[in-house]
């Protein structure tokens, strides 16, 4: 059985973002990078499935982006992926979801993966489109926002997170793609021996031009902070003074302090 997991490297979302010189995405200076959080759950679930299937199965991790994304791929390899495919694209950040999906489809089309895992969305773009578009491009079954996954005899039973705590159970036959929601599992921390082992694992490099030839379907024309709605008070300073200020405000504006 062949398994693919697609991951993205994203900046630490606690960072302060400012527009790049083109004004269409963030400036990458001084940003720290990590694996997209949703993708950590996807990798963990893929590794779990790989462990369940044992010998004769293979788990490939794929990422698209500049050379820095290899760091995120190494983490996935240390978590238990067998080998990596790095689609080299220094301009990945400005590709639209349709192009990213087309790239994965072009790679995966002849590889006959039985199960493909992705995060349900990236933390930076958050389009929640790529996984579903890949499934559509490959014409395979797809279920999204998984908080439960099990596999047996060519059938996936997935628990989808809906609204208000409700979950929907669905069954789909492989080949299939699933998109992973936070809380699906507990992503493991790579152990030191596994980090060392991962260094020896193969990461194949493919230039983006070899896979993608379609134009974007949408273009970002501006990247900016949200308009401040105003009205809210921002308080900064020494903690003791802040406490007194807040208590004053709460006494004046709310009825909860008696």
């Amino acid at each position: 059985m062949k398994i693919l997991v697609c991951i993205k490297q994203v900046p630490d979302l606690e960072s302060r973002f400012k527009a790049n010189s083109a004004g269409v995405w963030f400036d990458e200076t001084d940003l720290a990078w990590r694996m997209n959080e949703y993708d950590e759950y996807a990798v963990e679930q893929a590794v779990k499935l790989r462990e369940q299937l044992g010998e004769g199965s293979e788990l490939v991790v794929l990422s698209i982006g500049p050379d820095r994304v290899v760091e995120a791929m190494k983490k996935a390899l240390a978590m238990g992926c067998d080998r990596g495919v790095h689609v080299q694209d220094s301009a990945a950040a400005v590709k639209d979801p349709a192009q990213i999906a087309a790239t994965v489809v072009a790679y995966a089309r002849d590889q006959h993966f039985d199960v493909i895992f992705t995060g349900m969305q990236s933390q930076d773009r958050g389009s929640a489109q790529v996984g579903v578009l890949v499934a559509a491009g490959l014409d395979i079954a797809c279920a999204t926002t998984l908080v439960g996954f099990s596999y047996s005899d060519g059938t996936i039973t997935a628990k989808r997170e809906l609204e208000g705590g409700l979950k929907g159970i669905v069954k789909l036959k492989t080949p299939a793609l699933v998109t992973c929601q936070l809380g699906l599992n507990v992503p493991r921390y790579p152990t030191l021996p596994n980090i060392m082992k991962a260094k020896k694992k193969d990461i194949a490099a493919l230039p983006i031009e070899s896979l993608l030839s379609t134009p974007p379907l949408a273009a970002t024309v501006s990247f900016h902070p949200p308009a401040k709605k105003g009205g809210g008070i921002v308080l900064e300073g020494e903690v003791g003074i802040l406490v007194d200020q807040l208590l004053g405000i709460l006494k004046e504006k709310t009825a909860v302090l008696r």
């Binding site: 963030f26 024309v221 990247f223």
Partner: peptide, 26 residues
């Protein structure tokens, strides 16, 4: 094209959230 997480309308396009809601794109 699909444009996700639309929060507003602008001339000829759409305002969408990004970076965990911290930023916007047109």
């Amino acid at each position: 094209a699909q444009i996700s997480e639309v929060v507003g309308l602008v001339e000829g396009g759409f305002e969408v959230g990004c970076c965990n809601g911290k930023m916007r794109r047109t």
